[in-house]
Amino acid sequence: MLLYPANPMEAGDLAKILPHLEDRACASIMPQEVRNLGPTLYPMGSTDTWQRHVVTPVRAVINNAHDLGKCPPIRIKAYPKAERLKQDRARGRKSRVEKTPGSWEWLLAFRTKANRYQAAMAHFMFVTGARIGQAVALRPADLDLQNARVWMPEAKGMEAQWVDIPMDLVVELANLPPRRPRKGPHGKTRVKEARVFGYANKDGVYKAWKTACKKAGISEIMPHAAGRHGFATEMLVRQKLDARTVAKAGRWADLTLMQKTYTHAEDATGKVQAALRTGRVQATKATAAKARGSKRKSASG
């Protein structure tokens, strides 16, 4: 594990895993053994938690060692659906609860009660598909308001790039004074550089965000669902843009992932029932027209 350049989150995960695998050659570690560590380390976690905090870091360490010529690679299957459902029953709650995406109606209501920085940030994420981490990382130098664009930080395999923004957001950002966010115990210290939306990291966003939702009397939709999920659903489902255009604008490298994870059917039951009624009416009319045609043909014969 010393060969692997772990980030702080991975290092924390590996510290919990190491006592169970230390003094072992990588080649001796079996895939099922790694999967079994999930329920051992996180007995009340979901299979997604096991995958993210156990399988993924172990696989990364071993395959990194393989790249360095130290051992064979390892392939670890994901936890099957049956195991996910079994674990959900055991812990008494459902994993993979579908997110409710943001919408223009939700955003406008949220902005009436949010502070000006969160109002602008929610607007920014919804119209660009930005992640919360990208939004809080923005610095004044990342704004090119003369050309109505923002230098979007890299995220999840997508490189940093210029992203166009609408003119109403340009005006809002131009009138939003950058501020140095607080950091540390009780907010006593401040980050050296100012941030566009005034937050040091995403953890500082949620409390005020929830308060704004409550005051506005709207569903408590968290930033990622309100922004990135909202952007995809707005573009694909409500405005019916083609998937490739949306994927490019929202910076999705994987078209299938975007369609599977980030788009949400709205009023599916109502739409299906309406479609069934429409189909029945059309079939009834067609049947009646055919019957009339047959009668006329018989009468003329």
Rank of each mutant, 00 (worst) to 15 (best):
L3Y: 13
M9P: 04
E10C: 06
A11V: 10
L14W: 00
L14C: 02
K16Y: 09
H20A: 02
L21D: 15
C26F: 05
S28C: 05
I29L: 00
P31E: 07
R35M: 07
N36T: 05
T40P: 05
S46H: 14
N63Y: 15
N63S: 07
N64P: 01
L68K: 14
C71V: 11
C71Y: 13
P73C: 11
R75C: 14
I76P: 05
A78K: 15
Y79S: 10
R89L: 14
R89G: 15
S95N: 12
T100V: 13
W104M: 06
W104L: 14
Q118V: 00
A119P: 02
G129V: 04
I132C: 05
A141I: 13
L143D: 01
V150Y: 02
M152I: 07
P153T: 05
P153L: 02
E154A: 14
Q161H: 06
W162L: 15
I165L: 01
P166R: 05
E172L: 09
G184Q: 14
R195A: 02
N201A: 08
K202W: 00
D203F: 09
Y206M: 04
I218H: 06
S219R: 14
S219N: 15
E220T: 09
I221N: 09
H224C: 07
T233R: 00
K240A: 14
A247T: 15
K248H: 13
A253N: 12
A253P: 04
L255S: 03
T256Q: 11
L257V: 11
Q259H: 10
Y262C: 08
A268W: 14
T269Q: 09
G270T: 01
K271W: 11
A275L: 13
R277Q: 10
T278D: 12
A286C: 06
A291S: 12
A291D: 06
S294F: 15
R296D: 10
K297H: 06
S298Q: 13
A299V: 15
S300Q: 12
